[in-house]
């Protein structure tokens, strides 16, 4: 029905998008893995970051890719502060409270953005979206290729951070046994905030990578966070490699699904996958703890 070249191109495009999905999911899964909470405000924070990228790039004329590093630092600070002074103290260690506090946060952020920017769709001016690279028989979008590369790089850095540094060791210790970690002299509150900050920094990177080919509205984060939740559950809650593989997989499924069944399947299809995964395999495809 379709020539192999078209299918191959759809698969590669899916992989490229999937890598950025994985980046959003990495932040979510990291926070879940260490804090054991579901950060419901993840999507709203991504939207914030995307508006920041849009503002810097359109308002101040900064190249999109140069906004990533400073914004990642800022978002890290925002995330750290949010967890240290707001989410942590307000939830008093109860999961249901955390869920509600982050829900409140997402409602407040999303509607504040709506009040300021209205529901208009904004894109970056310029023709970066049409910048293509010829790779054998395939035409691939350059911003997506960059997104793919940077996402993998960030995942690698994150993995090195978790396995090779003292902070990473402390994070893993807290993830396994918060009480024991506290007794060993680790400042658990600081580690929680650190993890949350890193999760938010991932969002800043994702925002910078997404914007050249995507649009931003006050509700755009919801679409991504839904995909991210699906990826996180699919890859096993808290598993970094799981998030990466899950992201690539979902990206490919979405791309092929769009090609074979039409784009309208889009979000509804992902919700259905999400429900099925939760019902049938809540421990994730790779059997990590749920």
């Amino acid at each position: 029905m379709y020539s192999p070249a078209i299918i191959a191109e759809a698969m590669v495009n899916g992989l490229l998008t999937g890598a950025v999905y994985a980046l959003v999911a990495l932040g979510l899964t990291l926070v879940y893995g260490v804090l054991h909470i579901i950060n419901f405000a993840h999507g709203a924070l991504l939207t914030c970051a995307m508006f920041a990228v849009w503002g810097l790039s359109e308002g101040l004329g900064v190249n999109v890719y140069f906004t990533i590093v400073p914004l990642a630092v800022v978002m890290f600070g925002v995330g750290y502060a949010l967890q240290y002074w707001l989410i942590g103290p307000a939830s008093r260690g109860e999961d249901s409270n955390t869920l509600l506090v982050t829900l409140g946060l997402s409602i407040a952020i999303e509607n504040a953005l709506l009040a300021v920017f209205h529901s208009d769709t904004r894109t970056l001016s310029g023709d970066a979206a049409f910048d293509v690279v010829e790779l054998g028989p395939m035409l691939l979008s350059r911003p997506r290729l960059i997104g793919f590369g940077v996402s993998l790089l960030v995942a690698l850095v994150l993995w090195l951070l978790l396995t090779r540094t003292d902070a990473g060791k402390a994070m893993r210790a807290v993830a396994k046994e918060p009480m024991g970690a506290r007794l060993a002299g680790i400042d658990v509150r600081h580690i929680f905030a650190l993890t949350f900050g890193i999760g938010c920094a991932c969002l800043a990177v994702a925002a910078g990578l997404l914007l050249p080919t995507f649009y931003v509205t006050p509700r755009v984060g919801n679409a991504f966070v839904l995909v991210a939740f699906t990826i996180v559950v699919l890859g096993g809650m808290g598993s970094v490699p799981g998030a990466l593989i899950g992201g690539l997989l979902i990206g490919m499924v979405e791309s092929l699904g769009g090609l074979l069944f039409g784009e309208s399947l889009g979000q509804g299809g992902i919700f259905v996958i999400f429900i099925l995964v939760l019902l049938l395999r809540p421990q994730g495809l790779f059997g990590a703890r749920a």
Binding site: G104, A108, N111
Partner: peptide, 17 residues
């Protein structure tokens, strides 16, 4: 638009806290 919902979100956080 949405200003009442901003308030609702903040109230939710405050109520929990």
């Amino acid at each position: 638009t949405g200003i009442d919902l901003v308030l609702f979100g903040l109230i939710l956080i405050a109520a929990i806290a």
